[in-house]
Amino acid sequence: MSQAFTKAMARNIFYGGSLFFILLFLALTFDTDSTLPSRDNHAAITEKVAMGKALWEKNDCIGCHTLLGEGAYFAPELGNVYKRFGSTDAIKAFIKGRPKNGIPGRRSMPQFNFTDEELDAIAAFLKYASEINTNNWPPNIQG
């Protein structure tokens, strides 16, 4: 880099540029926050859904699955599983039916021994997630 461009100038670009883009980011965050109510399906967040989210976290479901495309890539996307399976009953039946010792040679979801109330909550959480406005993602029902 040429001599005319000094270290002090480079430093000022760093501080000035960073500050500007931090402020811009905060402004966009503020705008996002005020736009979210029209997109984030928050009206559907009941106590049951909140319980479902807590169970989702407590069992580290994200360690195998993706949810809205984020997580691990070992097991299917669950952001749209409510639409793929068609009902909360189908979701509950699937979780309930996992064999305790897995399936020889294949990937299998563990048997979590959830109570009926817990199954209801998890299914309600996944239904809520499926109704978030995700700009039409995923591209198709397979996730």
Binding site: C61, A72, G105, S108
Partner: peptide
């Protein structure tokens, strides 16, 4: 898929 299952599941 069943390697170490269920002792160390994939997420762990």
């Amino acid at each position: 898929g069943d390697f170490l299952f269920p002792a160390i599941p994939f997420n762990v």
